[in-house]
Computed example of a mutant assay.
Amino acid sequence: MATLRLCALVAMPGTAAVTLDVPAGACAGLVAAPPLGTAVARVVSGLAAPVAGRVLVGDREVTTLPPPQRHIAYVPAGGALLPHLTVRRNIAYGQRRRERVREVADAWTATVVDQLELAPTLGLHPHLLSEAQRFRVALARAVVCLPEVLVIDLPTGPVVGGRLTDLFERLSPPDTPGVAVLVCTADPTALADVPVAAEVDE
């Protein structure tokens, strides 16, 4: 596990640079308007190129690396679950990136399902779940590949169904420093118990 570092990162033209550190095992919030918050989340995850600045995971600069090489997992706004797949198969979809942790992936997936209380939902499709359950499934899908960093594009409103930090504490194997979690949102009240590391205006 490693610290996420954003170094003078500009995700959209004409917007302020973002500089922050999120240590392993910690979570931090970034408050920004919807287009900008989503842009930062996508740039950190490797789905878009920055205008300027750098993204580091520990001592590795990942700014120009493709998503599979970053060891960063991404939960987009709304979760982006595949509607035609059951919860079990949605979570398994995240295991496509598990090659580097194959020896522990299956056991860790079972642990995540248990920790996020998803066992009763495994045979259901996303439209049968509550919003909070869908969010937990999206979290499970993101962390089954054992990322070092988790980036969440959190929409406004009460989608979590509990304290964010309580959920995040369940997302790393025991006896590890833990995953660094960055939550991007336009709604500071959605962060609740998550410390705000930066507020960015367009």
Results as ranks from 00 to 15, higher is better:
R5Q: 10
L9Y: 06
L9S: 07
A11S: 08
A11I: 04
G14Q: 11
T15Y: 07
A16W: 07
A17P: 04
A17Q: 09
L20C: 12
L20S: 03
D21Q: 12
V22Q: 03
V22T: 03
P23W: 05
A24W: 09
A24E: 09
A24L: 02
G25R: 09
G25C: 04
A26P: 00
A26E: 15
A28Y: 02
G29N: 07
L30T: 06
L30E: 08
V31Q: 10
A32C: 04
A33Q: 13
P34S: 04
P35K: 11
A39N: 05
A39T: 04
V40I: 14
V40L: 14
V40Y: 15
A41N: 06
A41T: 10
R42Y: 02
R42F: 02
R42E: 13
V43N: 08
L47E: 11
V51F: 07
G53R: 11
G53C: 06
G53F: 08
R54W: 09
R54G: 02
V55F: 07
V55M: 03
L56C: 11
G58V: 05
G58P: 04
D59C: 02
D59F: 00
E61I: 02
V62Y: 07
T64R: 15
P66G: 08
P68R: 12
Q69E: 14
Q69D: 14
H71E: 11
A73T: 03
V75F: 05
P76Q: 10
A77R: 13
H84G: 00
L85T: 01
T86Y: 03
R89E: 13
R89L: 06
R89V: 01
N90M: 07
I91W: 05
Q95Y: 00
R96T: 06
R98G: 11
R100L: 10
V101M: 06
V101H: 14
R102Q: 12
E103R: 15
E103A: 15
V104D: 11
D106I: 02
A107S: 13
T109V: 01
T111P: 00
L116R: 12
E117R: 15
E117K: 13
L118K: 12
A119F: 06
L122H: 12
G123Y: 08
L124Q: 15
L124E: 14
E131F: 00
E131T: 15
A132W: 12
Q133W: 07
